[in-house]
Amino acid sequence: MKTLGSRQVLLGVLAVVLVVLAWVVVRAAQGPATPAGPSARDTTASGPSAGGTDATGGTDGTDPVSGLPWVAESALPTQAPETLALIRAGGPFPYPRSDNRTFANRERLLPPHTSGYYREFTVVTPGSADRGARRIITGNSGERYWTDDHYASFSRIREGT
C-alpha cells in the first residue's frame, strides 16, 4: 500500500509542476504587460514636432495608447493615402486575395487584442514585382498603423494631417 501512496504523491507533484510550467509558457508567449514602445528606427520626420504634449494627449509625438510614434498622413508615400481612401470606401483593393485579411500581430508590436481585431492592407510599391513591404494595419476601433518594413516597426497614422 505504501508504494501506491508514493505513486499518487509523485503523480500529484508532477501534475502541479506541469500546470505551473504551462502557465509560465503561456505568460511568456503573451509578451510584456505594457505595449511596445517606438522602434529603434529614426522617426524624427514622421511625428509632430518634439517636446510637449500633442493634440491627442501624446507626448513628444507618441500615441499614448499604443506607445508608437505618430506619423502624419501627409508624410506617408503618395500611395498610402490612396490605400486609406480604399479602406474608407471598402475597396476594391489591389491585392484582393491578401488585402482586408486578419493581421495576427505575431510580432506583438501593436496593442494586444483578440484575434480578428486587426486587418491588413497593401500599400502599392511602384516597381516592385510583388506586394512589397508597405502595409496599413487597421483596428476595429478605427485606428490605423503604418509599416514600411514588413511589420518590423510601426507608427500610428494621424489621419487628415
Rank of each mutant, 00 (worst) to 15 (best):
S49M: 08
L21F: 10
P32W: 06
T102Y: 00
G91V: 02
W146H: 07
A50T: 07
A75V: 00
Y145S: 08
Y151K: 06
R106M: 03
R97S: 13
T102S: 08
T114S: 15
D148V: 01
P64D: 02
P38W: 03
T44V: 10
S153W: 05
T122E: 05
A133F: 06
A45P: 10
P94G: 02
P32L: 00
A36L: 10
L86H: 04
T138Y: 11
E107D: 10
R41I: 04
A85L: 07
P111E: 12
R131S: 10
S39F: 01
Y118H: 01
N140D: 10
T53P: 06
A85S: 10
T3K: 13
T114V: 05
W70P: 07
R27W: 15
R144N: 14
A29G: 09
H113E: 08
Y118A: 04
A104M: 05
A28I: 11
V19L: 12
Y95M: 12
P96R: 11
V123F: 11
G67T: 01
Y118R: 03
G160F: 01
P81C: 01
G31V: 00
Y151S: 06
P77K: 09
D42Y: 05
G67A: 01
V19I: 07
L76E: 15
S66Y: 05
D42T: 07
L18S: 09
